[in-house]
Design a protein around this nucleic acid. Sequence first.
DNA 1: GTCTATAACTAGATAGAC
DNA 2: GTCTATCTAGTTATAGAC
Lengths: 225, 225
Amino acid sequence: MSATQKENSEATEVRARILEAAEQLFATHGFDTVSLRQITTKAGVNVAAVNYYFGSKAGLEVEVLGRVVRPINESRLQMLNDAEKEAGGRALEVECILHAALMPAIQTIKESEHSDPVVLKLAGRCMSETGEEMPVAIKKLFNQTDHRFCAALAKALPHLSKAEVFWRFHFTMGAMLYSLTQHETLVMMSDGEVTADDAGKALQQLVAFAAGGFCAENACKGGGQ
Amino acid sequence: MSATQKENSEATEVRARILEAAEQLFATHGFDTVSLRQITTKAGVNVAAVNYYFGSKAGLEVEVLGRVVRPINESRLQMLNDAEKEAGGRALEVECILHAALMPAIQTIKESEHSDPVVLKLAGRCMSETGEEMPVAIKKLFNQTDHRFCAALAKALPHLSKAEVFWRFHFTMGAMLYSLTQHETLVMMSDGEVTADDAGKALQQLVAFAAGGFCAENACKGGGQ
DNA sequence: GTCTATAACTAGATAGAC
DNA sequence: GTCTATCTAGTTATAGAC
């Protein structure tokens, strides 16, 4: 019995160690560049274990990404639902919607700074990676969540067309992902004006920026040219 | 003589064909996933030619990226310089600065739609790719340009701190890159509200959004939580 | 269930013929 | 200058011992 239990707990631990190692390596170096050997070496398990537990490298990628993205999207939706429940039938404030859309991801980054250096870069990496096999299922997951947020924003900003809401939500996601993945670039570019541990302020800055963007008038008569 | 000329023109044509094939393949599939063999096959040249002309795959990557990014940044700077010259010493309008910062890249995309399907995805890809060997020189090139734009924006928005200007410029770049690289995602997500050939409208939408973001007040008292 | 050993393949780079 | 042929080292995936 104890032998069986030990085997089981070790078995699940192997799977968990693979996931953890893969998460860190994928986050720092990208999906394509990290090899299964790097992952299994870091995890202290055998090369074959990945194929046993996840079928293939692509299967591991999907699982790693889902494990990171799923709780974040759940948290985003729950915050939105809570806010809507509290507001009754009234439209929510734009800042409130954006806060719910942006906070969980940034919070995850912030928390991970104590344990792993980079975790959620993964989500950002999906936007430029190979992009044909793996992210299909994940994009559907995002689409569902995104539609809820776009609906809430359309309700809060009835003077905007649906297309404009989609555009601006898209811009907001881009700003978020870029600030998550390229924080060092900002630190470097700003010559000390933005310090490395400003990740907490990113949420404030981003919500303020996106709220301003959403509340802007639609047409732009252009500038210099 | 004619033989030498022919050889020379063919030699430069080999180099050019490699660059063109690499540009397209890197844009659609990313730097890491594309092999030299794919590039040389598409270009109709020999495998060894890449190492002969560019030293290594990394050398080719740098050259491809530079060829795309350099003219865009030159165009951005020129538009900014022209606008500042026209304005004398006065601060420029925010929309005007953003127009100069965003238009060249989006315009390049728009033009390339007639010849190649995707060209400037390259720039977007740099934000998540391996990120240790190649983008260093390129980042410096961007930094120079970015500093000019941040200075102009700080002058136009004196009530914002320098850090806030950097943050918001960073968000704007993220929104731009995301809308360039993930345009199909937007088309898909919007269920027909945004059509595939809306690339021309992206500039208007993005300038309006970013201008609203830049003109927003700084502190955000948060929403639901 | 787990791991060793290896298969089957592809990568980037290069030496040397032309 | 250009290309054929090949080298070394890396990859994923799997068959089979334990």
